[in-house]
Design a protein around this nucleic acid. Structure first.
Length: 465
RNA sequence: GGCUGGGUGGCAGAGUGGUCAUGCCCGCGACUGCAACUCGCGUUACAUCGGUUCGAUUCCGUUCCCAGCCUCCA
């Protein structure tokens, strides 16, 4: 089955084929680590994790790099405020980020490169750009000369004329052209810096990605992902550098995820309307957050709300309910499919996923499987469907918990006490003392425990009231 | 203003030129001692006005509205 992906460069869905048939290379822009990340930062981590899983199933070898930006003026400001070295701050928040996205079910990327570990590569890259006439040193800075790149603007679909020169930013006097962007800038003694041919300084934002891509993935990569707010200027600038460094194609498929909004406005730290993954994790499981993120197609804006989380939780519970009520088949959890090839996954789920990562469509197909499980009166068929549901769970990165444990997490009543009451209620029902039986059930419900009678006996779940 | 992308049933959110998305919520029915779980059912949902068509929510154009980017940003 072909995988079709929307390529920002062409503006349409194109059939994906890797440059090398046996290997896929993918780079995704990660966060700048100067604080806890918000859930909007989690969207690319989760979305491209699904793509990573899908590509692994189809091609086997996928080299996936997700970077950490650990040198940046906001970091400098935060470190100064906290009176800490920047590395103390960035180590702390990089670790927090990894924890957060791990909780969201993201697999570890092949590499998670950090900007500060690639200063030498960046300097070498800048020297090449200068030698090739695309960059120049001025006043301690090195700038990329945008007019030297005739392709500039093809990614974000804007012409040089469209960009009003210096309309919103004062143009630095050392720039030959207002659109020129910084590859390297000087550092004062109180700022982090590295020795370079242009004096002690630090890299500009766009420099790191190109250097790390070249080092870890090669001159030409298959996929570059990130938030749509990065398309311009970040990715446009990266592409300007990259196309000259790779003498040809820099990135074959540019993928951009849409923004999360709070109400109708973009979730953004500068707007102050963020909610951190850390805060959300205190109230919801990582899987619920992941389900919520995948409930919309990745290119579309997604409105983040309490209601979305409630609906996601209920929807996820329905899938777990199907697992709970069906006989265990050949496998017990989705990780059994981590090395499975693409034809081992249900087609109904693959079809939407292969169509530009239509995760809502894939989740709908999973609900279809869940319904089929409940309808199946043949245990063999139910087992087969259960395995299919778990296989789908691997691709989407959900259903990793034991179903029973899923429904019992956070119980505030001792399980042995619950079991005792269930036995007592069973006896009451046997002697037709329904008043007593119902009293036990009501009492437990008031304490957050719900009973369900099945043909195999009574089971209990946590039920928030 | 320029460039992108949107406006679908109470809510979320796919998709399609002519049967059905899906989930949540709500109601009714079945199951149950009663519930819960589960299953079944729920009238013209596709911003607006035109056009193409035997037929458009889906294609083309108009109008209105919304968001993102154009500055750091996932």
């Amino acid at each position: 089955m072909d995988i079709r992906l929307h390529n920002t460069l062409t503006g349409r869905k194109d059939t994906f084929t890797p440059l090398r048939p046996d290997r896929v290379t993918m780079y995704v822009c990660g966060p700048t680590v100067y604080d806890y990340v918000h859930i909007g930062n989690g969207r690319p981590a989760v979305v491209f994790d699904v793509l990573f899983r899908l590509l692994r199933a189809k091609y086997g070898d996928v080299r996936y790099a997700r970077n950490i930006t650990d040198v940046d003026d906001k970091i400098n400001a935060a470190a100064k405020e906290a009176q800490q070295p920047i590395s103390t701050l960035t180590d702390r928040f990089a670790a927090a980020y990894e924890e957060d996205v791990h909780a969201l079910g993201a697999l570890e990327p092949t590499v998670e490169p950090r900007a500060t570990h690639h200063i030498a590569e960046m300097i070498a890259m800048i020297e090449r750009l200068i030698a090739d006439g695309h960059a120049y040193a001025a006043d301690g800075h090195v700038l990329f000369h945008v007019p030297s790149d005739p392709g500039y603007g093809v990614l974000s679909k804007r012409s040089l004329e469209d960009m009003l020169d210096g309309a919103r930013v004062e143009v630095a006097p050392y720039k030959r052209d207002p659109k020129d962007f910084v590859l390297w800038k000087p550092s004062t003694p109180d700022l982090p810096g590295w020795d370079s041919p242009w004096g002690r300084g630090r890299p500009g934002w766009h420099t790191e990605c190109s250097a790390m891509i070249t080092k870890h993935l090669g001159d030409t990569i298959d996929i570059h992902g990130g938030g749509s707010d990065l398309a311009f200027p970040h990715h446009e600038n990266e592409l300007a550098q990259g196309r000259h460094l790779s003498d040809g194609e820099y990135v074959r498929f540019w993928l951009h995820n849409g923004m999360l909004t709070m109400g109708s406005e973009k979730m953004s730290k500068s707007l102050g309307n963020i909610v951190t993954i850390r805060e959300l994790r205190a109230q919801y499981s990582g899987e619920v957050l992941r389900y919520a993120l995948l409930s919309g197609q990745y290119r579309q804006a997604l409105t983040w709300s309490e209601d979305l989380l409630k609906q996601s939780q209920a929807s996820l519970d329905r899938l777990y309910q199907a697992l709970l009520e069906s006989p265990v088949g050949n496998v017990t959890d989705p990780s059994a499919f981590k090395s499975a090839s693409i034809d081992e996954f249900p087609e109904a789920v693959l079809i939407p996923l292969c169509d530009d990562l239509n995760t809502p469509g894939a989740l709908a197909a999973m609900h279809g499987i869940a319904t089929d499980i409940h309808r199946a009166n043949d245990p063999a068929r139910a087992r087969l469907l259960r395995d299919q549901l778990l296989a789908s769970g691997w691709l989407l990165g959900i259903l990793n918990e034991d179903p029973e444990a899923h429904f019992r997490a956070g119980a505030k009543v001792d399980p042995s006490e619950i079991e005792g009451l269930i036995v007592e209620r069973k006896a009451a029902r046997a002697r037709k003392d329904f008043a007593r039986a119902d009293a036990i059930r009501d009492e437990l419900l008031a304490r957050g425990i719900e009973l369900e009678d099945t043909r195999d006996g009574t089971r209990w779940k946590v039920r928030d009231t």
